[in-house]
Design a protein around this nucleic acid. Structure first.
Length: 540
RNA sequence: GGCCCGUUCGACUAGCGGUUAGGUCUCCACUCUUUCACAGUGGCAACACGAGUUCGAAUCUCGUACGGGUCACCA
């Protein structure tokens, strides 16, 4: 970072499945590093594995980046100075560069079949060889002979000739010098039998051609970095800076690399559950990195401004859904203004089949719900009663309604007579009524809440009632009341079960009371006896 | 198993030779209160272990333990 050269970073996702949260993580850091210095951020699609290739994946990855606001300067969609950005379209490039190294002997042809390779492995296993795998036995086939066999159409791969002894050292900007014995890096395949390059080869060629200055990628690549270094040297190219990011971890006991089985790794799923892109980005930004100020909440711009990869910590951070939700809730409550939040929430409500006519009403609902939601999906989940009469009554709510029928009857009448239904009017009426009845607030409020919303968890009830407006409130109270009188236990299984439970509880209570009475009687008897005893002498 | 990397509260982290080891999430308690929340206050809770260097070590060195990664014609 100290040199003045323009920084170029990249992410290189493989289009093999659902857009992965790990891609966003690495993407975010690469984006921040590039953007800080007016550099270039590239998205290159590494689709060299035709087995795992997934047709929809690339588009979805691009959508994800767009949703997050992590827009690449160069990509298959955006184009750029060094196209194409899809490796499957760069085969001629790899072929050309592979040919160069083939000529110089850095690459050599290997003609062994899969079966032969398997046989080799089995044989090594039996003999308890120090390592399993290709042993470089075709290194010394003369170049001309190899060419002839290739020309004859013999299937082959191109392998990298790695030094037999010595070691390769590279500098990781976070870890310092990392040295790995060359005996550890085998003669890996660079060009596959199908003519496609492997990751290592395509990656090095593309990074060089695209001018990548900082290779910031996941830690899992550390041990194969010597291969890349050997390649850069073989080409005589400048070696970029390597920055290996810690791996996101599962929240299990041993903290293995983040995986689909243990946590949701699909960014699309986070989007679906109503996580805001800002919150996801911010949360990911705190994984392994921190603001110098210690501030936990920061937006993309602020992260770019303050980003410094030397502040990255190396312990693998556990992906904690609870904390993500906390970030999300904070963003909904404090970072987004009401209109923006309302816009974001709307699709979730509509998706749930809910609708509204009055935009002011809608904004009021969102406002009043804001401090009790964590995700956008919480709006339809927790506030449906604002948009439809077709909501479920929770069992607890039914109980409350039953217990408060008298009050509900009164309130139904009182509400119906109200001319104005604004907050103060409703508030005055309800409070006045409660005072008249000389009961605790909850005695009246809870049945009312239950009747009007079907649930025990809502915003301030007066807010809810006045927002819902008179007709809806009155009719909902009426409906709740009717439900109580009409739904006899026999034709309502839920109520029936409830009635049974209540009967049991009542019986139990009675039993306890009886027991208590017995005890009491016993105590009294004992007291009496003691008294008598006292009377009979001792006392005096 | 070989090699590579890592290790501060349950989780995310601050710390970069001298701190009562700080903050955030979670959890608990209290306050507020018509429910649920929000908010506020308080609390539980950590330097993996052992040597060494040093007047002094969470910070430096070595070893051990533990964890992760990697050993493919996948990336």
């Amino acid at each position: 970072m100290s040199d003045n050269k323009k920084i170029v970073t990249r992410i290189a996702p493989s289009p093999t499945g659902d857009p992965h949260v790990g891609t966003v993580y690495v993407g975010l850091f690469n984006y921040a590093l590039a953007k800080q210095n007016g550099g270039t951020f590239i998205l290159r699609v590494e689709d060299t594995d035709r087995e795992r290739f997934n047709e929809t994946s690339e588009g979805r990855i691009l959508d994800m980046m767009d949703w997050l606001g992590l827009n690449p300067d160069e990509s298959p969609a955006a184009g750029g100075a060094n196209p194409p950005y899809r490796q499957s379209e760069r085969l001629d490039v790899y072929t050309e560069y592979a040919a160069k190294l083939f000529e110089t002997g850095h690459l050599y042809a290997s003609f062994m079949t899969d079966e032969e390779l398997d046989a080799l492995r089995t044989e090594q296993r039996q003999r308890k060889a120090p390592f399993l795998g290709y042993d470089g036995r075709e290194r010394d086939i003369p170049l001309e002979e190899a060419k002839a066999r290739i020309a004859a159409g013999e299937p082959h791969v191109l392998r990298l000739r790695t030094p037999e002894d010595g070691e390769t050292t590279f500098r990781d900007e976070l870890r310092g010098d990392v040295t790995i014995a060359n005996s550890e890096t085998r003669d890996g395949v660079m060009i596959k039998k199908d003519g496609y390059p492997t990751y290592h080869f395509a990656n090095v060629v593309d990074d060089h051609l695209m001018g990548v200055t900082h290779v910031m990628r996941a830690e899992e690549w550390v041990t194969s970095t010597p291969i890349h270094v050997i390649l850069y040297n073989a080409f005589g190219w400048e070696i970029p800076k390597f920055i290996h990011l810690p791996l996101l971890r599962n929240p299990d006991s041993n903290k293995s690399k983040i995986s689909k089985r243990k946590v949701d790794t699909s960014v699309e799923n986070y989007r679906k559950m109503g996580i805001l892109p800002e919150a996801l980005l911010n949360y990911l930004g705190t994984m392994g990195w921190s603001m110098p100020t210690g501030e936990e909440f920061f937006n993309l711009e602020e992260m770019i401004e303050a980003f410094d990869y030397s502040r990255i910590s190396l312990g693998g951070p556990v992906f904690d859904m609870k904390k993500l939700r906390h970030f999300n809730a904070t963003y909904m409550r404090e970072k987004l203004d009401l209109e923006t939040l309302a816009d974001r929430a709307a699709p979730f409500l509509i998706e749930a089949g809910l609708s509204w006519d009055d935009e002011d009403y809608y904004l009021d609902v969102i406002e009043v719900m804001t401090e009790r939601v964590e995700t956008l999906q919480d709006f339809p989940d927790k506030a449906a009663y604002f948009f439809t009469d077709e909501f479920e009554y929770e069992e607890q709510a039914l109980k409350k309604i039953k217990g408060g029928q008298k009050y509900l009857q009164d309130l139904e009448r009182e509400f119906a007579q109200l001319d104005s239904f604004d907050y103060d009017t409703v508030n005055d009426m309800v409070r006045g009524y409660i005072q008249n009845q000389s009961v605790k607030m909850g005695e009246v409020m809870q049945p009312l809440r239950a009747a009007v919303t079907g649930t025990g968890a809502t915003p301030d009830l007066i807010d809810v009632v006045s927002l819902l407006d008179r007709d809806r409130v009155v009719s909902r109270i009426g409906r709740a009341l009717t439900m109580m009188t009409e739904a006899l236990p026999d034709d309502n299984p839920e109520l029936h079960a409830k009635a049974e439970k209540e009967a049991k509880e009542k019986a139990e209570k009675e039993r306890l009371a009886q027991e208590e009475a017995k005890k009491e009687a016993g105590r009294k008897a004992a007291e009496q006896r003691a008294k008598e005893k006292g009377d009979n002498g001792e006392d005096k």
